[in-house]
Design a protein around this nucleic acid. Structure first.
Length: 413
DNA sequence: GACAATATTAGAGGCATCCA
DNA sequence: TGGATGCCTCTAATATTGTC
């Protein structure tokens, strides 16, 4: 390949280097982890950064703790300066953030490492390089520890990084990738704003405070049991293998939390057989019912797209003269009420009696319910679309990283 | 329907050992 | 001998069904 040379990281441009991280970082401030022992906060002490303070590529300044400082060489060399990178060695392993001027003088705790680039290496380029899937895969393949998975500092120091000799090329690559980051961040904020808007509209539309055009008449107070047939679920005997791994989907709270707010459920992790269904309290629920978690993660809901069963942590409403989409949003909106009514010492659970006697306000006509349900569903569809775009942008950025950070695709400087 | 625990994960603390 | 660091321990938070 003309213009390229072969290194242990593969082919890189002739005017790039393949360097150990220890050669990219300052000699007097080598890659090291913090030794600050947090203990009780010290008034007017030194602020220090823990793993949990590294959030979404930034240092979260809100909950930083303060501690007294030790005067030692180890302490001194992890005192933060503008442009330094900090990386989690435990927990969110590999999570990175760039320190700004406001973090100067802060220190690090035991689970966080300092990466301080030399003047001729750009820290934003290095941050992008260290966030790349290749880099992360390498880290995950080199974890130490048994009780607690952790990165050894020497592993990080010895990682080889492809880097342009020209700082302006580093800056340009970092600039291109940061632009993508900004687009992703903008979309994240847009999704959050849309979700907030939906929350506000739900409060208004589902209580009758705001009416959609063309609807009148007083909303009625109804008990949940008046809105449909309430079914409970059950677990077939787990010791009898014939009851399991059949064709019938069987919902547990994990399946619902795994939907991440998506409305519909079609497949579940665990399945039961006809014999399992017959010999347990599980019941087969018809499609388009509203399934509500009444235990542990109380109030989480979903609509089943096909006949399905649940364990006993759910109550299902098979709607009668009520629009199922309206009912779904209505149930979501009373999550807090359900939690309030729940009992239990180890974890909360709302009983069937309490659940079916909960009172809710409903519009007088099914057509108004349908319009409200469709309106909110449309909002959710818009959010779904934004989430898809968000995922797609992230994938595109990963592809670009692969090209730009290996020199396969060059930028014009 | 009422009631009870456990597994997993994340992260802070700190001991033991190595080495300059 | 004291600083550096690897790694173990402990705690807190979180997530989950199963049994009587």
């Amino acid at each position: 390949m003309e213009g390229y040379k072969h290194t242990e990281l593969g082919w890189i441009p002739d005017d790039w280097d393949c360097l150990e991280l220890s050669h990219i970082t300052q000699k007097e401030r080598p890659v090291s982890y913090g030794i600050v022992q947090t203990g009780l906060p010290v008034k007017d002490g030194i602020k220090c950064i823990r793993v949990l303070d590294i959030v979404n590529g930034k240092i979260d300044d809100d909950n930083l703790i303060t501690t007294s400082h030790k005067i030692s060489n180890a302490y001194k060399r992890t005192v933060l300066q503008d442009g330094d990178l900090v990386m989690a060695l435990r927990g969110k392993i590999g999570e990175l953030a760039k320190a700004t001027k406001s973090h100067e003088g802060y220190n690090l705790t035991r689970g966080v490492a300092l990466v301080a680039p030399k003047a001729n290496y750009d820290s934003e380029y290095l941050k992008q390089q260290m966030s790349s899937p290749l880099f992360r895969d390498y880290l995950m393949g080199h974890l130490n520890g048994s009780a607690l998975k952790e990165l050894a500092i020497n592993v990080i120091r010895k990682i080889k990084v492809p880097i342009p000799k020209s700082k302006s090329e580093q800056l340009k690559i970092a600039d291109v990738l940061s632009t993508w980051d900004k687009s992703i961040e903008t979309l994240t904020q847009l999704i959050a704003a849309k979700q907030q808007l939906k929350k506000g509209l739900m409060q208004q539309l589902l209580t009758g405070k705001k009416r959609l055009p063309g609807f009148k008449g007083k909303w009625e107070v109804k008990k949940i049991k008046q809105l449909g047939k309430i079914e409970s679920g059950g677990t077939p005997d787990t010791k009898i293998v014939e009851y399991w791994d059949g064709q019938i989907d069987w919902i547990t709270p994990t399946d619902i939390t795994g939907l991440n707010g998506y409305r519909f459920i079609e497949h579940t992790q665990r399945k039961i057989t006809n014999a399992g269904l017959k010999n347990s309290s599980a019941t087969l629920i018809p499609a388009n019912s509203v399934i509500i978690c009444t235990r542990a993660t109380i109030g989480d809901c979903a609509i089943n797209l096909k006949p399905i069963t649940t364990n006993q942590g759910f109550k299902t409403i098979i709607p009668k003269d009520v629009n199922y989409m309206f009912l779904y949003y209505k149930m979501l909106s009373i999550k807090d009420v359900m939690i309030e009514r729940a009992n239990g010492s180890t974890f909360l659970e709302i009983s069937k009696t309490d659940f079916e006697n909960l009172e809710v306000l409903v519009p007088p006509t099914e057509s108004e319910q349908t319009v409200i349900g469709s309106f909110l569903e449309k909002l959710d569809e818009e959010i779904d679309l934004l989430k898809k775009q968000h995922e797609s942008l992230k994938l595109q950025k990963q592809g670009l990283m692969q090209q730009l950070l290996t020199g396969k695709k060059r930028v014009k400087v």
